[in-house]
Simulated assay, not measured.
Amino acid sequence: MIREKPSSKEEARRFIKGYSGGHVGVVGSVLVTNLTMGTRKGGWDRAEVYFHDIPDEDIDSCGWID
């Protein structure tokens, strides 16, 4: 499943709950364009992120979700 930025507080809580005790793969990329020369260089990387169990009370107390 591909996830982007959550669109609501409820969706953010579902995402975090789904990560609890699991792992995800994340992909990052960069593309740089030289406007003078018209050349482009880019790259990407993939990483695995592993999560400990996240208690519900910790999820509910996250200040950045509210």
Rank of each mutant, 00 (worst) to 15 (best):
S7C: 07
S20F: 02
G28M: 11
D58Y: 06
N34I: 00
D66F: 06
I16N: 00
I59M: 14
K9S: 11
R46V: 06
E10W: 00
D58P: 01
H23C: 08
R3M: 10
E48W: 00
I16P: 00
V30Y: 07
G28S: 11
R40I: 14
W44C: 06
G63P: 02
I2W: 05
I2K: 08
L35W: 01
S20T: 13
H23S: 13
H23M: 13
A12R: 01
V32C: 15
T39P: 04
G25I: 08
V26R: 06
T39C: 10
D45P: 03
L31E: 08
I2R: 09
D66G: 07
K9F: 03
V30M: 03
V32N: 14
W64M: 07
G63E: 11
W44Y: 12
R46C: 04
D66E: 10
D66V: 01
D56C: 05
S61T: 08
R3E: 13
T36W: 08
I16S: 04
K41T: 15
D53N: 09
S8H: 09
L35A: 10
G22S: 13
G43T: 15
I16F: 02
E11D: 12
E48C: 07
H52Y: 14
D58F: 14
G38P: 07
G21T: 09
G38I: 01
G38Y: 12
E48A: 09
G42R: 06
G38M: 08
S61G: 06
F51H: 01
T36K: 15
P6L: 01
R40K: 14
V32P: 00
G21K: 11
I59T: 11
E11S: 08
E48D: 07
I65T: 08
Y19Q: 04
M1F: 03
R14G: 00
Y50V: 01
L35Y: 02
D53T: 03
T39K: 15
G28P: 02
G42Y: 04
G38L: 03
Y19C: 10
A12I: 04
H23Y: 13
K17V: 02
N34D: 15
E10H: 07
G42V: 13
I59N: 01
D56K: 08
W44V: 11
Y50K: 10
V49A: 03
F51A: 12
I16E: 01
H52K: 12
M1S: 09
G63K: 13
K17Y: 06
S8L: 06
D58C: 00
S29G: 11
V27F: 06
I59Q: 00
V49L: 05
G38D: 05
G21Q: 10
T33R: 09
R40Y: 12
V26D: 10
H52Q: 08
S61F: 08
K5F: 04
P6K: 04
G43I: 14
G63I: 03
D53Y: 04
K9P: 04
D60L: 14
V32A: 15
N34F: 10
H23K: 15
R40V: 09
S20I: 09
C62Y: 14
S61Y: 04
W64C: 06
G22M: 02
N34W: 06
V49T: 02
S7H: 05
C62A: 07
G38R: 01
D60R: 02
S20K: 03
T36S: 14
D66Y: 09
M37E: 15
R13L: 05
G28D: 13
A12Q: 01
V32Y: 10
D66N: 14
G43V: 00
R3I: 13
G25M: 08
